[in-house]
């Protein structure tokens, strides 16, 4: 399984970025080889509109099975992500990536359906 996170930094101890479209980084954890990688998303900073769809496309290209985020994607990004077979869990606000991953494993994060 590949798990994506919206992240404010580049380590397991970074806090989940509550924002979807304007997340600073996208973290990608591959459970098979236990590798954690980060994709820089700061390029959307200069966009007045469309950050949600831009990030949705970027996450789609990483092909994760699961996304863990904070506030959840907005309406437009949710429409975009309907075309993706990815499960989205949210309300991981204020958690580190590690904590959010454990909460997800324990089934404590709500899923967006």
């Amino acid at each position: 399984m590949k798990i994506a996170f919206t992240s404010s930094g580049k380590t397991w101890d970074s806090i989940i970025d509550p924002r979807f479209g304007r997340t600073e980084y996208i973290a990608l954890y591959n459970e098979e080889n236990e590798e954690l990688n980060f994709v820089d998303n700061t390029s959307v900073k200069n966009d007045a509109h469309g950050a949600g769809t831009a990030t949705a496309q970027k996450i789609f290209e990483l092909k994760p099975d699961v996304l863990i985020t904070g506030n959840g994607p907005g309406e437009t990004a949710t429409t975009a992500l309907k075309h993706v077979k990815m499960k989205i869990y949210f309300k991981a606000n204020d958690m580190t990536l590690k904590q959010a991953y454990e909460e997800y494993k324990n089934g404590n994060l709500p899923e967006i359906k």
């Binding site: 469309g50 950050a51 769809t53 831009a54 075309h83």
Partner: peptide, 9 residues
């Protein structure tokens, strides 16, 4: 430029 058209697969 406005990410109004995106490709999802």
């Amino acid at each position: 430029k406005y990410h109004a058209v995106i490709q999802l697969g």
